[in-house]
Each structure stands twice: as structure tokens, then as C-alpha cells.
């Protein structure tokens, strides 16, 4: 089975975000990046499916400027067989339809049996690129997947629904699945894997589409959310003092102790 895994590079979760000059995005110059969380789980699932199947290929696909090579190299070190890097500079301005169209052009010829993506990105949080890609490539899909059984003729996948409900769906291959975090425990790259990765192919592809004027949405402004509740901040930067004050408040104001 040939499995493509789409992986996006996003701002590091613990990075301090600063708004850029024209307030249309964050300042990216000195930002640290990491792989989007659920995409890491998508890769893990692909590697496990390959191992279970006994043969096949896992191809990681990432779009963006040269910096996304970090995500690609890490995926190769964890066990992906090769990579496709779709070169695009303006990653943060891509809307899901434009992103999916660009990816579709770049990966169509791979004729993969399965395409896995994370269920949404931790930056824009559109939760759409995978599903739109499925539509553009005429593939059946399932979202928020937390278990995959690829042993039969058809795929059988378990989807998470809201508030503790689940549902299994079957569909023919090839198909596209968006993977939920937690589907399995993510492996670490071994030293051997890191060495082996150096010899693996990373194919660069120029983005095919010119999409100026195509975007169906545009950010006009970003800002820190308005607070909705009056929070009493305790300790004034001194965590220990804050803790002592909190115990007192829990007794006198909240009356819990």
C-alpha cells in the first residue's frame, strides 16, 4: 500500500506570538516551528499500517518555504520512505481551497492507495484542506478518525463523534482520512533512523497553480481576544505567594475549603 501523509509546519505551541506590523498575521521572522500535532499522529498511523501490511511505501508531503524541510527530515527519520516538498512562500495566506488545489496537482500522479492528514492545523484551524483535497481527487473520505483497519478489501475506520459517541464507516480504497490526535503513541526518531534519513529522497515541486484573486476569504485583522470575565490575578508574578493567596480565597470567597 502506498500512503501519502500531508504534514504542515506550524508555530511552536509554546512560542510567544507577536502580531505583525499591519496586524494581518503573526511576526514570523524569529518564530520557532514544529509539526502540526495531529499530522504527527497521521504519520505514525501510516507507518503502522505499512508495518502491519508488511510492505508498501510512506511518502510525506509538506508545503511551504525551505524551513518546512525540518518537518520533512524529522518524518523521514521516523521512518517515512521519501518526501515531496511543495515549494510555496506564502503558506500563511493560503486558504484551504487554494492549498488543497496546489497539493492535488503535486500529488495526483502518485496514485496513492491512501492519503492521511491531521484533522486540522494548530494555526489557522480551518479543518478543511484534507476534505477538499479528497473532493478534488474524487476520493471518498472520513474525518476525525481514531482507528483504521486496512486489512480487508475495503477500509474500515472508526470516527469520533461528539460527546463520547463513535461510528465505524467502510469505504473503498483509494481514500483520504483526517486523523485525530491520540490514535496511537508516536514513536521517536532513532539515531539509526536519523542516519538513514540522510539518504532518502526529498523531491522539490514548484507549486503549479497561480491563485491570485482566487481566495474566498481574507484576514483583515488579527488581535488578542477580548476577555469576557474579570479574573482576579493573584501573587503578582510570585507563584508561591499566589498559591497562598489562592488557598485563602478558596476559603473566604469561593467557600470551598
Amino acid at each position: 500500500m502506498k500512503i501519502l501523509v500531508l504534514m504542515k509546519q506550524v508555530a511552536n505551541k509554546d512560542a510567544i506570538l507577536r502580531i505583525n506590523k499591519d496586524a494581518t498575521w503573526i511576526e514570523e521572522g524569529d518564530l520557532s516551528h514544529e509539526v502540526n500535532e495531529s499530522d504527527g499522529y497521521a504519520l505514525e498511523e501510516a507507518l503502522r499500517l505499512k508495518e502491519k501490511g508488511g510492505s508498501g511505501e510512506v511518502v510525506v508531503v509538506s508545503m511551504g518555504p525551505q524551513r518546512v524541510k525540518a518537518v520533512i527530515k524529522d518524518a523521514l527519520a521516523r521512518g517515512a520512505d521519501r518526501a515531496i516538498h511543495i515549494l510555496r512562500d506564502n503558506l500563511s495566506q493560503l486558504t484551504p481551497f487554494v492549498a488543497a488545489s496546489t497539493i492535488a496537482e503535486a500529488v495526483r500522479a502518485e496514485n496513492a492507495d491512501l492519503i492521511l492528514t491531521g484533522l486540522q492545523s494548530d494555526d489557522h484551524g480551518f479543518a478543511q484542506t484534507g476534505v477538499i483535497l479528497a473532493e478534488l481527487m474524487n476520493l471518498p473520505h472520513a474525518t476525525i478518525v481514531i482507528e483504521v483497519d486496512a486489512s480487508g478489501e475495503n477500509l474500515r475506520v472508526k470516527r469520533e463523534l461528539e460527546s463520547g459517541w463513535y461510528q465505524w464507516y467502510s469505504m473503498p480504497k483509494p481514500a483520504l482520512l483526517t486523523i485525530q490526535s491520540g490514535i496511537s503513541q508516536i514513536r521517536y526518531a532513532t539515531l539509526k533512523g536519523i542516519m538513514a534519513a540522510k539518504k532518502k529522497e526529498i523531491r522539490e515541486v514548484a507549486a503549479a497553480t497561480d491563485d491570485a484573486g482566487q481566495a474566498s476569504q481574507r484576514i483583515t485583522k488579527i488581535y488578542f481576544p477580548q476577555k469576557s470575565k474579570q479574573t482576579q490575578f493573584l501573587g503578582d508574578g510570585d507563584a508561591k505567594k499566589g498559591a497562598a493567596q489562592l488557598a485563602e480565597k478558596l476559603r473566604t470567597e469561593a467557600r470551598i475549603i
Binding site: 481576544p225 476577555k227 469576557s228 470575565k229 479574573t231 482576579q232 490575578f233 493573584l234 501573587g235 508574578g237 507563584a239 499566589g242 498559591a243 489562592l246 480565597k249 469561593a254
Partner: peptide
Amino acid sequence: DIADYGIV
């Protein structure tokens, strides 16, 4: 945003 008491 939704906390009554906060410690930074």
C-alpha cells in the same frame, strides 16, 4: 478568559 482566579 474564563477564570475567576488566575496565577501567572
